[in-house]
Simulated scan of single mutants.
Amino acid sequence: MRNMPACNAYVPDYTALAALGKRLHVAVGADSGQEVAARGGHGLAQRLGRDVDVFPSHHAGFASADGDFPGQPEAFAAKLREVLA
């Protein structure tokens, strides 16, 4: 929880982000629900007038499938290739 105060106090440069146009993708995890990471992603996308890209698993869906907080790395990689194409 050490990084939470700094993350919560951060204010993005919305103008600079909006200027990126279609190069900017805001991603959230399908299983993140209303966790802080997902709320931040949805809020940023809404502020920029964009949709989110929903990735499989949670906000660390790229993590090993057999770790302490298992993700779906293969499905995450497939979604990442789709979004970047």
Rank of each mutant, 00 (worst) to 15 (best):
M1T: 03
N3P: 02
N3E: 07
M4I: 07
M4Y: 08
P5V: 00
C7A: 11
Y10A: 13
V11L: 15
V11E: 13
V11D: 15
P12G: 11
P12K: 14
P12D: 12
Y14A: 12
T15R: 12
A16Q: 15
L17D: 13
L17E: 15
L17W: 11
L17N: 11
A19Y: 13
A19K: 15
L20Q: 15
K22H: 14
K22E: 15
K22V: 06
L24W: 05
G29M: 03
A30G: 04
D31I: 05
D31R: 14
Q34E: 10
V36T: 13
A37V: 08
R39C: 02
G41Q: 00
G41K: 02
G41Y: 00
H42R: 15
H42K: 12
H42Q: 15
G43Q: 08
R47S: 02
R47N: 03
G49W: 07
G49P: 06
G49E: 05
R50K: 08
D51F: 00
D53S: 09
F55R: 01
H58L: 06
H59T: 02
G61H: 07
F62Q: 08
F62Y: 15
F62W: 10
A63W: 04
S64F: 04
P70W: 04
P70L: 03
P70G: 03
P70S: 05
Q72I: 01
P73E: 01
A75E: 11
A77W: 03
L80W: 10
L80I: 08
R81E: 02
R81D: 06
E82A: 11
L84T: 05
